[in-house]
Amino acid sequence: MNLLDPQGPVAAANSTILVDSVFIMLVIVVPTIFAILAFAFWFRASNPKARYRPEFVYSGRVEMVVWAIPALTVILLGGVAWIGSHQLDPAAPVPGTGSPVRIQAVSLDWKWLFIYPDQRIATVNTLTVPAGAELNFQLTSSSVMNTFFIPQLGSMIYTMNGMVTKLNLRADNEGKLQGLSAHFSGDGFPDMMFDVNVISPLAFPDWVASTAKTDAVLNADSYKKLMQQGIERGRPTYRLEDPRLFDLIATQHIPPGPGPELASEAGRSHSGGHDAR
């Protein structure tokens, strides 16, 4: 999951900007640290060779330089940030070979559901994508906030109930990657890791076909079961009954996930909020 070992163009660009920014800053940071240590050492009271200059408390030239150095650095980095933000906007297209794959990701408590509306299949905690194709993600959450992140493909983004975020990625090399949730979401949060299988574009239709053969069907009912709080150790796959399922979730036609079973229902009745629900 090394950020400096990108497996797609977005991650590559992210990490290039990251490394470049560090180097731009190191150019002034290293000499400054060196100067701090050198001055602290040389001007120590016990050094008779150092000249004591108590009157040196203002110098227009020095002031000019010390305002200019950080300012110039920031101007340079500001340019990097401006261009980078626009080029690497999560919603910006990432052209690839072949037709783009649409994936609708839903963060559940505490697992990831990936819906392939065009292929009419869905998977849990495993994401299979063809290498080289543009991946168009639409993301939402069934309950609390999460962040969708595949470190080696780049750019994380929030998932929120009642809202849809967009993210475009591309995976260039076949292989196995890992993704995770990067926003704390409750007790099962550390188990929200998921596998990312990048397979060859030729194998992808086969994978879709074999997945579609499953007996398990994803519809509003089975989704409601799936969104109960819990950890999913397996990697279940589904046939998708209604390709609009994601829209139903995102527009809250399917109500948000229920949260934990209440330990003491009696305790809650004291709160005025009870009647609201």
Partner: peptide, 23 residues
């Protein structure tokens, strides 16, 4: 990032306070 400018200035001013001091 702009906040880093005045912060950087502070670091340099401390640095030059040490310069020519008797530390």
């Amino acid at each position: 990032m702009i906040i880093a400018v005045p912060t950087g200035v502070k670091i340099y001013n401390w640095l030059f306070t040490m310069y020519g001091g008797r530390i």
